[in-house]
Amino acid sequence: PKKIAVELQEFQKNPEIKIALVKVEGLVVTDEIKEMLEKGNQLFDAQKYDEARAVYEEILTKYPDAYPIWKNVGNCYFAQEKYAEAEQAYQKILEKDPNNADAMVAIGNTFLNRGDKDKAFEWYGKVNVDKITDPVVIYNVGTMYYNNSRFSEALAYYQKAVEKQKNFTDALYQLGLTYLNLQKNQEAINAFEEYLKIDSESPRAEQVRAFLAYLKK
């Protein structure tokens, strides 16, 4: 069968991190929390991680029930490559919410960036993909597997991400690449054709068309 060499993306030490206050049942999100969180986020975006962390920790001191903000604390440490401290912060979330998929993935990332792939994938393996509602979280786990050439595992996550969000172009693209790596060319064709129904104009769409032209020879 035809095989296309696909360049793997290197896992970034400082991946783009989206920070948001997760709604917590029973927590009244006051104007003060919103203002402090916005201040912390601005400092984080300015790469002033120590100052941002201090703001997030102040929120947690005043409002202990706002435990999802421990992820923001962990993200500050993660951006500074202080992975042990980041892990400890993410663990604080699991103390309150043992099934929190975001925290499990984040802990896995800390081990991956410390070079402990076995421990990283042990944490990724704790995530129950069927219970994750956010397709971005599902996609992120799939990408961890993909970036480490574990294509069979990546496939299951990309399939689920597309199932959750049909127009998720990043997931469709990665799904096609994963099928290519598994030499499942007809499935790759199907994924890439679905991609072009959503995005036909971008530079990546041109690459997708090139893949399709090769596969259909």
Rank of each mutant, 00 (worst) to 15 (best):
V22G: 05
A20Y: 10
Q12V: 08
N14W: 01
K197Y: 01
F44I: 08
A101I: 05
I17G: 08
Y90T: 06
E81Q: 15
V24M: 13
V136M: 06
P68N: 08
E87F: 02
Y157M: 07
P68L: 02
V28K: 06
L180P: 06
Q42F: 03
N100Y: 08
N190F: 14
K197A: 13
E194N: 12
Y157L: 10
L212W: 06
F192L: 11
V129P: 00
V6T: 07
E16R: 12
A86H: 09
Q159K: 15
P64D: 02
K2V: 14
K184P: 12
I198F: 14
N147I: 01
L43W: 04
R150F: 03
Q42A: 14
F121V: 11
N99K: 11
I17K: 13
K48Q: 15
E51H: 07
Q207S: 13
P1N: 12
A191G: 09
L215F: 10
T110C: 15
D116E: 10
I33Q: 00
A46C: 11
N113L: 14
A89Q: 06
M144Q: 07
S202D: 01
F151L: 09
E194F: 00
Y124V: 01
A86S: 14
E32L: 11
E95Y: 05
A54I: 00
A171T: 01
P203D: 06
M104W: 13
I107C: 10
L112F: 07
K34Q: 10
Y67N: 03
D50M: 10
Y214A: 12
N148T: 08
G74Q: 07
D130S: 04
N109V: 03
A171L: 04
E201G: 10
V55R: 07
Q207P: 05
Q47E: 15
V22W: 03
D134P: 04
G26N: 02
P64C: 01
Y49R: 03
